[in-house]
Computed example of a mutant assay.
Amino acid sequence: MQKITPHLWFDGKAEEAVDFYTSIFKNSTIVNVVRYGETGPGEKGTVMVVAFQIDGQTFVALNGGPQFTFSPAISFAVNCENQEEVDALWEKLSEGGEKHSCGWLQDKYGVSWQIIPSAFIEMMHDKDVAKTQRVMQAMMQMQKLDIKTLREAFDRE
């Protein structure tokens, strides 16, 4: 059993959101769906919680009502192997949502994501501070991160 499981609070769109996420990410599955019964508080038969996995990470989506909403103060960082993966996830997750700067976006459900190429992380761990500062400066000018542009900033003398 996973030690920590993120719970996502939705207002009636938990099942729709889970279908969206599991359609985007490879190695994803819906584990379990629990529906409200006679005692509520939701309407009988509607989804209460959906447990799902994205690439081995378990999440739970809850239809909790309008009391709480998402904030960019919490986000999910997705490490991408190449530009094609960055591009695909950026476009799919931002559809109907909002694109922000520095690889951040908010999907149509209000959940915030950071779409980060692993090459960026590797460059930022370099011991040459001038290189990492150039990469950071280049990244600050972007919405979707572009590995080629980041690499050019890293390699520039």
Rank of each mutant, 00 (worst) to 15 (best):
1 M>C: 11
6 P>N: 07
9 W>T: 14
10 F>Y: 03
10 F>C: 01
10 F>Q: 00
12 G>R: 00
12 G>V: 00
12 G>K: 00
13 K>S: 05
14 A>G: 10
14 A>H: 06
15 E>R: 04
16 E>Q: 10
17 A>T: 09
18 V>S: 01
18 V>C: 03
19 D>L: 14
19 D>T: 15
25 F>K: 05
25 F>A: 08
28 S>M: 12
29 T>I: 13
29 T>D: 06
30 I>R: 08
30 I>A: 05
32 N>A: 15
37 G>C: 04
38 E>C: 12
39 T>G: 10
44 K>D: 02
46 T>Y: 02
47 V>M: 02
49 V>D: 00
52 F>K: 09
53 Q>C: 12
53 Q>K: 15
54 I>N: 04
55 D>E: 14
56 G>A: 13
58 T>V: 07
64 G>R: 00
67 Q>K: 10
69 T>A: 15
70 F>K: 08
71 S>A: 11
74 I>S: 12
77 A>E: 09
78 V>P: 02
80 C>V: 08
82 N>D: 15
82 N>R: 12
83 Q>F: 02
83 Q>P: 08
87 D>K: 06
88 A>V: 06
89 L>A: 07
90 W>R: 05
91 E>Q: 13
91 E>A: 10
94 S>D: 06
94 S>K: 03
96 G>T: 12
101 S>Q: 15
101 S>D: 11
102 C>Y: 09
103 G>P: 02
105 L>G: 00
105 L>V: 03
106 Q>K: 14
108 K>L: 05
108 K>E: 01
111 V>Q: 00
111 V>A: 07
112 S>C: 11
113 W>H: 03
113 W>S: 04
114 Q>K: 09
115 I>S: 01
117 P>H: 10
119 A>C: 10
120 F>T: 13
121 I>V: 15
122 E>R: 13
124 M>D: 09
124 M>A: 06
125 H>V: 11
126 D>N: 12
128 D>F: 11
129 V>S: 10
134 R>P: 04
134 R>C: 02
139 M>V: 14
141 Q>I: 10
143 Q>D: 15
152 E>K: 15
152 E>V: 07
156 R>M: 14
157 E>P: 09
157 E>M: 11
